[in-house]
Amino acid sequence: MELRIIKYKISVIILILPFHNLAAANNEIFVNGFEEIPIPIVRFNLNDTGIIWAGNILTGNSSTCISDIAADQDCHQGRDANAATNSNADGHAGFSFTKLDINGNQLGSTATNWSCVQDNVTGLVWEVKTNAAGIHNRINTYQWGGITAIGRDHPARNGTYFDPSWNELVTNSNDNNFCGFADWRLPTIIELSSIVNKGTTTPAIDINYFPNTSSGIYWSSSPMAEFEDFARSVSFFLGDDTINMRNSSRLVRLVRSDQ
């Protein structure tokens, strides 16, 4: 009799288990023992694109925001088009940057020696690459998947997470309190795209704030969902997001945020 009850209990558990898995597939309860805590949605601001000129219907870009398209387009809208926010004094058009020294002190826009840039729209703080030898050097490249790569510590991760990758850069920046912060990491593809100035190319970024930027490919922390041998990156040659083999050696720029 007791054995029967135990059998019954086991069969109930077995019946419930598949539903548990379904919930996991919906990202709601457990994934391989990992509790999925719902991410609180915090209001955040997007950067504008940096595009302050108009395109034509079929071919040709204008040098101004007037073209043969009567309707409004990118250059008519957002921070880049707003006189209150599009001053070039704090970065191209709608971008608003503040230079920080290696201890995190804010500097004036004409400062000639700075280590990080604070983005006043998104709230992100970015590493500035240098010509000097060392971990922040502009030509250092890394295979994808080091510390802070998304999914690196998840038991159900796909594909290879290479080491040593950018581990030394992240660890030393945090240990040294680089620019006053100890939470440096690789940016997601959305974050990395946010500092692309799509109004220009080679490189597609405001070099007055981000000197020593290569027109090459910079890794994001974001994997490519369908293709586990790939991760996401931004080519600052044209400013488009690209996918690259994780085993290829690419540039990086660290970021940190309050969340």
Partner: peptide
């Protein structure tokens, strides 16, 4: 479509491909 024209090819504009969420001229 996005409303953003493309600097390096003046007959192109930016799209997002919602197959994988990548941008593309």
């Amino acid at each position: 479509w996005s409303s953003s024209p493309i600097n390096f090819n003046d007959s192109n504009g930016w799209n997002i491909n919602f197959s994988h969420g990548t941008d593309i001229p």
